[in-house]
Design a protein around this nucleic acid. Structure first.
Lengths: 236, 236
DNA sequence: GCTTCACCGTGACCTGTATCACGAAAAAAG
DNA sequence: CTTTTTTCGTGATACAGGTCACGGTGAAGC
């Protein structure tokens, strides 16, 4: 295997191996500066901390949601899966952000149509449903946090829609690489073409050809074992 | 012109011609039964009522949002537009529902990336931004209403994504017709193929061919001046 | 009546992309 | 080192769907 330190763990069933730890108020406040002090204290009191290994699945389509999840550290990838196993990347949630679906499912106890997988080792805060609801009225900073989480996810979904509706594979690939670069703050892509193809619901061959076109234009460098991003902004 | 009583009004600039009226608490409570009495009273006090003609545009990409919008009567179509003028239908908002973006933009005063257009004569309730915020803490039924609005829109977006990502035009067309049927409670489609093609970001010719295939299977009847839906569920 | 205009139908064609079938190369496992 | 696995590159091919060109129809306006 050439690369992909993180995305290859194929977890067949709901990932069970979360470990629990504790957390301090300072730590929390650092990652979620917008939350008021009293709320932070309460979170520390009632929330669980879970640590996930890279590649671990933490939510799957149709699963019931029992708690709201905030990402303390690491990053989680949100994607869709169709009946034939085709994947479709939507967006990342990283430190200081929350899973909007879990926030909103809270009241209704509904199931989600999404998959979530840790893309790096990650620390999550799990908050029992009824607090999510209760805090909406009690803490203004919580309500604002929830609403702005929602808005951010919604916007990202909209962008995703724009791309699949209006753009071709080449543009979508560049967009995907840009997001990856932003997310992981690196110019080095350690994913196989096969994996990229999956995330874009395309095929390895297509990605291969497009990558070569990008390399010809000097946008990326194909290093065999990985891809080096040179200047993504020079196209589109 | 053959049909389309409602979708043809090409409004070149932000539609200005909203009329104002008043509303009663009973009326409001009928359309929004989940809202508590005190809240209904307050809405009546502070909200404007706007009436839109069919085809009138009420929000365009990039526009700032000044108030939250609830649909009292009629229906509003939410869609995306790309730079080349390609449209892309996302979902309808009808009586008793709210525009989630406007609810969530409230706090941040941000702009939206969406277009909204009345598809029938519609009555909207316009609520000044700061109440949206204030009521989140004050009225539990409001917070729940906002959150569930959000969730519903989110789910609809997800469905839309599924379709453009994983399905072909034929399935998407059927899905579009189904939504239309549900929305307008009619088995008669009064849209030109050109219009349908626009909403699906496709082309008239393709819709024409697919429609004939559907007619061959007995799913629809092409009546020349309109399309009759016979049994959409018999496919897919 | 004729003209115009919006819509529909259809065949020809092109393009993007998915798929198949290879073989080469590199990495991991033995 | 040898074998196995994984990845990559690439040509051939297939298909969905977008585009073009054209002609037909029915309604509205003159």
């Amino acid at each position: 295997m050439q690369n992909n330190s993180q995305h290859d763990t194929k977890v067949p069933l709901p990932a069970p191996t979360a470990t629990f730890a504790s957390m301090t108020e300072q730590e929390l406040a650092k990652h979620f500066p917008s939350l008021e002090k009293a709320l932070v204290a309460e979170i520390v009191k009632v929330a669980d901390v879970k640590t996930l290994a890279a590649g671990e699945l933490l939510m799957r389509t149709g699963q019931n949601i029992r708690s709201a999840l905030l990402v303390l550290d690491g990053a989680v990838k949100i994607y869709r899966e169709d009946d034939q196993g085709g994947e479709f990347f939507m967006y990342y949630i990283d430190s200081g952000k929350a899973c909007a679906i879990s926030l909103v499912c809270a009241l209704g106890q509904e199931t989600s149509g999404l998959m979530a997988k840790a893309v790096a080792e990650s620390t999550l805060i799990s908050i029992p449903l009824h607090y999510v609801d209760e805090w909406m009225g009690k803490y203004k900073s919580w309500a604002q946090f929830a609403v702005s989480s929602y808005r951010e996810r919604f916007d990202e979904l909209l962008q995703t829609i724009d791309h699949i509706a209006f753009r071709n594979m080449d543009e979508r690939l560049v967009f995907y690489l840009k997001r990856y670069q932003q997310q992981f703050k690196t110019a080095r892509i350690d994913l196989s073409f096969t994996e990229i193809a999956q995330e874009l619901n395309s095929s390895r061959e297509v990605i291969s050809r497009l990558m070569r076109k990008l390399a010809d234009k000097g946008v990326v460098k194909l290093m065999g074992s990985h891809v080096e991003l040179v200047n993504l902004d020079q196209v589109f």
